[in-house]
Amino acid sequence: MNAWPYPRWIAHRGAGKLAPENTMAAFRVGAAHGYRMFECDVKLSADGVPFLMHDATLDRTSTGHGIGGAQSWDVLSRLDAGGWHSRAYAGEPLATLESIAAFCLNNSYFLNIEIKPTPGEEAQTGETVANAAARLWANAAVPPLLTSFHPEALDAAKAAQPQLPRGLLLDGLWKGWLETALTLDCAAVVCNHALWDSSTVLQAKSAGFRTLSYTVNDEWAAERLWDLGTDGIITDRVDLFSPGS
């Protein structure tokens, strides 16, 4: 991407830890704190519906049990995805990518979709999520940014919808990370914030990538990243960092 249209601050999973992650409630809380861009995790139900959830299993963030991707959307849609967080959010349902897209598009918000496949479904998830994103944002000025830790998912997204911007997520600088991001025609590299230093930022920027960081919850870490010249920060602390800064 020659022009980078996204804000510098990105709310992690909607609102960090202030609301049940990856739910509509979280997006509303993040927006209430002034955030205009959000990150979320998207996987597929057993019948192919893209929905928001971080973990492979349902147990931590819903009343369901077992592998989320093994359940139909009819079953998933009836789970409570808010009560685990606090009583105030009891009864909050799981969100679909379609519902999050409507929220973002109707409010001129930006979205980072992390493709979070159920293990073994990397290519299918990448393709399906990319096709859904292309359809939902067909008339939008700015498309969502698709990211993943799984090169197979990004490769499938690229094959399906090459016009959508992609970002390679890294929790370690494994051999060939830069070459992989180039091969996938990524627009960005999104690192654990501790991995960025003057050398890695130079490598990424020299290759034409934007540099983003997760998950930054301390002021000193944010200041270090801005001093390094990175382009975006994903944070849980929507209550601490002003997205206008």
Rank of each mutant, 00 (worst) to 15 (best):
N2G: 01
A3L: 01
Y6R: 03
W9K: 14
H12A: 13
R13K: 10
A15N: 05
A19G: 06
A19Q: 09
V29I: 12
Y35N: 07
R36D: 07
R36A: 11
F38P: 00
C40Y: 01
V42P: 10
K43A: 05
A46Q: 11
F51R: 13
T61I: 10
S62T: 10
S62W: 02
H65Y: 13
G66D: 12
G66L: 05
I67G: 03
I67M: 10
A70I: 04
S72D: 08
W73L: 00
S77D: 06
R78F: 00
D80Y: 07
W84A: 11
W84F: 15
H85F: 14
A88Q: 07
E92G: 15
E92C: 13
L94S: 04
L94Y: 01
A102C: 02
L105E: 03
K116A: 06
K116V: 04
G120R: 09
E122W: 10
Q124T: 12
T125Y: 05
G126S: 03
A130W: 01
A130D: 04
W137T: 12
N139S: 09
A140Y: 02
P144L: 15
F149A: 14
A153M: 08
L154Y: 07
D155E: 13
A157L: 07
K158S: 15
A159T: 08
A160T: 03
L164A: 02
R166P: 04
G167P: 09
L168C: 04
L169G: 03
D171N: 10
W177S: 10
T180Q: 07
D185F: 14
V189R: 02
V190E: 01
A194Q: 05
L195W: 01
D197C: 11
S199V: 15
T200E: 10
T200S: 06
V201L: 09
Q203S: 07
Q203G: 12
S206G: 08
R210V: 01
R210H: 11
L212F: 15
Y214G: 09
N217I: 05
D218Y: 06
W220Y: 15
L228D: 03
G229R: 08
I233E: 00
L240W: 02
P243W: 02
G244K: 13
